[in-house]
């Protein structure tokens, strides 16, 4: 066990003289002044030292890992990649996705006639993206979706389609996890199965 129990040190007992005098105020002000002037000069020089950004003129630059609202991938030919398999609908913990599948005459015979996401229920957990076997629904970086009426939070398929080239960063991010390193070779798998 490499952990120890250590008693914290309390500073010496408070004396009356410690509560008096301007030194206390000065000490506190030194801290805040340091912050103030550092931030001020940095701002004047155009650099940032505080966590606040001036939204909406400045927007956050998120990494591709950021999970915003789910969107449907639109292929080059304008159609959705989704085949209405229903896994995202089932994986969603809050049941915010509604899919009505239908048949097409194309080679891929199934597509979602209706694909609705109730964004007022969506909790941005990302399970729909994880469950999808077709890379058809991914989390975007869109979060500014507030509306003034409740109907505005029901997103239909046409609102959810995003062209695939716009989703490139996210797709590249999730593809890093597509093959787990140290995946056993077929021989190793066979050996493991022998032991099962």
């Amino acid at each position: 066990m490499a952990s120890r129990v250590v008693t914290v040190e309390r500073p010496p007992r408070l004396r009356a003289v410690d509560t008096m005098g301007p030194l206390l105020i000065v000490r506190g002000l030194l801290v805040t002044a340091r912050h103030f002037f550092r931030n001020l000069f940095a701002f004047m020089r155009g650099r940032r030292t505080i966590a606040t950004i001036l939204y909406p003129e400045e927007k956050m630059a998120w990494s591709p890992a950021m999970r915003g609202m789910p969107v449907l991938v639109q292929m080059e030919n304008g159609k959705e990649r989704c085949v209405a398999c229903g896994l995202c609908e089932w994986a969603c913990p809050v049941d915010c996705i509604t899919i009505y599948p239908a048949e097409t005459a194309d080679e891929i015979e199934r597509y979602p006639e209706i694909f609705d996401i109730d964004m007022s229920r969506c909790m941005f957990c990302g399970f729909c993206e994880e469950a999808c076997p077709e890379e058809a629904i991914v989390m975007s970086q869109r979060v500014a979706i507030a509306t003034t009426e409740w109907r505005g939070s029901l997103w239909h398929k046409r609102d959810l389609l995003v062209p695939v080239h716009e989703l490139d960063p996210r797709l590249r991010y999730i593809r890093r996890g597509y093959d787990r390193p140290d995946v056993p070779t077929p021989a190793q798998t066979a050996e493991r199965l022998e032991k099962r």
């Binding site: 490499a2 129990v5 250590v6 008693t7 914290v8 309390r10």
Partner: peptide, 25 residues
């Protein structure tokens, strides 16, 4: 955790100030 080195801070008086110091540590 059994492979890492760390200290578990405890207080002495059990008042709010100790709780603050413990969290600090």
């Amino acid at each position: 955790y059994d492979r890492l080195d760390f200290e578990v801070p405890v207080g002495s008086r059990g008042d709010n100030y100790d709780r603050y110091l413990v969290r600090f540590e």
